[in-house]
């Protein structure tokens, strides 16, 4: 799926550029975007290092376990196949908490950590497990109480009240979250049958 989307985007891009007689942009875009991607990746690398370091401290001090204990009861019914108290619960809980607060950069390292821990339980390492699918769906549709990016963009554009969208965005992301949880439950039930 991802391979097909990736290849289609590149082939469409090349076809359109050639059709417009602007083949020169292809080379420039490929290498320009490669450089942009490297810069973004290095920036992310620094953020990941900081958050893995901090989360290790929080882990050793028992703080992460405390937070996970608060959120885990909500996650447990969604991941019946995970052993009780598995470390992936803490990482997933931290990832979702960061998402709720709109801290996208902080959420990513915890999400990657959760995936690493879920992968350790995976009997077929090349294939996504039901737990991974549930987690990614939750992550993708996570309710947001602070849509920081959109608020900043609105303030920049001179909105009468930039914060006007907080409640509507929380409601619509909440609806998305409830929706994917229900669909995921249904898909898991259908798979068992």
């Amino acid at each position: 799926m991802i391979n097909a989307v990736w290849a289609s985007m590149i082939l469409c891009g090349i076809a359109f550029a050639v059709a417009r007689g602007d083949a020169g942009m292809i080379t420039a875009t490929i290498f320009g975007q490669a450089a942009n991607g490297l810069a973004a990746a290095l920036n992310l690398l620094a953020i990941i290092a900081v958050w893995f370091g901090l989360s290790r401290i929080a882990e050793r001090s028992g703080l992460l376990a405390g937070l996970a204990r608060a959120i885990a009861p909500l996650l447990r019914p969604l991941f019946p196949e995970l052993p009780k108290g598995h470390p992936a619960f803490s990482a997933m809980a931290m990832n979702l908490a960061a998402n709720v607060l709109g801290l996208a950069n902080a959420a990513t390292p915890f999400g990657l950590q959760a995936m690493k821990q879920l992968q350790e339980l995976n009997p077929r390492p090349d294939t996504a497990t039901p737990a991974m699918i549930t987690f990614l769906a939750l992550n993708s549709a996570c309710a947001t109480i602070l849509p920081a990016t959109a608020i900043a963009l609105r303030a920049q554009a001179g909105a009468a009240d930039p914060n006007l969208i907080i409640v509507p965005a929380a409601l619509s992301s909440g609806a998305a979250m409830v929706g994917v949880i229900l669909i995921d439950r249904w898909l898991r039930a259908a798979r068992r049958r």
Binding site: V5, W6, M9, I10, C12, G13, I14, A15, F16, A17, R20, D22, M25, I26, T29, I30, G32, Q33, A34, N36, G37, L38, A40, A41, L42, L44, L45, I48, L112
Partner: peptide, 21 residues
């Protein structure tokens, strides 16, 4: 391990957008 993944995504998005597709 993420660096090549991110570079790959950036190239596909850039080509798709800049070409007018």
């Amino acid at each position: 391990r993420l660096i090549p993944l991110i570079i790959g995504i950036y190239i596909a998005i850039g080509l798709f957008r800049e070409s007018g597709a």
